[in-house]
């Protein structure tokens, strides 16, 4: 897909992943500009409705980034997210949205490198898939 720049929406939990993104920024590590970040208090707050809204409003891919298992500041928010993520992926595929267009990952405050890597991978994958047809 030539000249196609995917739009990716990222829901980042305040306590770990957002910090991780910040760490990447402070270290001046470059990551693709395709990501638009939305800060949430916990990945567990990401209602599946937000994800559908994101796809409807033009996202080609959606990422949810939260604390590692055991580190969630609300105890199990991230584990709820994990379960929802699996169910939602199956629903999305019946709606014609390839499973890879939704990605969940754990990023801690110190993992600036991992953040950059995950965003780059996602961007690359979205380039391969092309724009989400509407």
């Amino acid at each position: 897909m030539k000249g196609f720049e995917p739009k990716i929406i990222g829901f980042l939990c305040n306590w770990c992943s957002y910090e991780g993104a910040d760490a990447a920024g402070r270290a001046r590590k470059a990551y693709p500009a395709n990501l638009r970040v939305l800060r949430v208090m916990c990945s567990g707050r990401v209602d599946p409705q937000f994800i559908l809204e994101a796809f409807k409003e033009g996202a080609d891919g959606v990422m949810i980034l939260g604390c590692h298992p055991g580190d969630c500041h609300y105890k199990e928010g991230n584990l709820q997210t994990l379960k929802r993520y699996y169910v939602l992926k199956r629903v999305l595929s019946t709606l014609g949205i390839e499973e890879d267009r939704l990605r969940l990952d754990w990023i801690s405050a110190g993992e600036g490198d991992k953040f950059v890597q995950v965003v780059s991978e996602m961007t690359e994958r979205m380039r391969q898939l092309g724009p989400l047809p509407r």
């Binding site: 209602d47 599946p48 409705q49 994800i51 559908l52 709820q80 379960k83 929802r84 699996y86 169910v87 939602l88 629903v91």
Partner: peptide, 13 residues
């Protein structure tokens, strides 16, 4: 707002 999203999240929970 979205019945399917709601069902997905309660079932996951």
């Amino acid at each position: 707002r979205d019945q399917g999203a709601k069902s997905s999240s309660f079932l996951a929970s």
